[in-house]
Amino acid sequence: MFGGIDPGLLIASLMVASVPIILAAIGELVVERAGVLNLGVEGMMIMGAVCGFIMAVQTGSAVLGFVGGALGGAALSLIFALLTQFLLANQVASGLALTLFGLGLSSLLGQGFVGIRPPATAALPFGALAEIPFLGRVLFGHDWVVYLSIASVAATWWVLRSTRLGLILRAVGENHDAAHALGYKVRRIRVLAILFGGAMAGMGGAYVSLVRVPQWTDGITAGAGWIALAIVVFAAWRPWRALIGAYLFGGISVLQLNLQAAGARIPVEYLSMSPYLITILVLVIMSSGKGKAALNAPASLGQTFHASR
């Protein structure tokens, strides 16, 4: 053990640090599984951060704040859905525009909310369970959003793997023409997936402004949306791997700060770049050997669909 680092505390704080990127990454994973590439995660997150913050402050309820965050993110993603699914605009450009728009709009909306403290989100009361030496800290010392983030991974995995809904969603993402020929409403399914992605990213953003840094500041998400996008690729579009990826990224950033605070003499630079090195490594391993199929990217990802036949 390095200096005074308590492994229980470390794991507990990495779980908290990873929540925003898990939520956003799971949302984006579903969107991409439906064949849509939405690069606007950062914009939707920050909209969620500001809308959630405003909602929580106005109503005095942190739970409603998260609802507000989800609505804010979903509202912004609706613009993206309109542009790409109905006006058939380029998805990459629309996504980037969404991020820029979200950053600006959130700054405008947040003008009157700088310097206010939001209502607190307390840890769930597990009573005696939280007193268990190591496990209590790690498993039973969190607020409800941490459990929700893990539950959302499990639910997404189950829906994608074992339900008809998941099968349809994947069919749309793999081959939208075939799905259309079978009579599935490609556009409607994609719009719903985009809204889901927006809501999840919005909740992730709200977690940043309501729990992790309980305040509103311009640009508060500071690039978390881009990390979420990278994690989706890292995870090869699989929910549990996204969870691992998020813990890896969140964990390393928390670990390196803790190591510094403990006075460990490990150069900070190596730790800071290690998640990216691992990402590259994983991509290399996945794309070699069995070939590109192992990469698992939805075949229709990023392609515009128009029901011309």
Partner: peptide, 23 residues
Amino acid sequence: VVWAFTWFDPAKEADAAKAMIEQ
């Protein structure tokens, strides 16, 4: 001393403070 290697990243700054408080 904890180096954040950023001028502005509220989440990371909060994490840095948290790491120190925990110790």
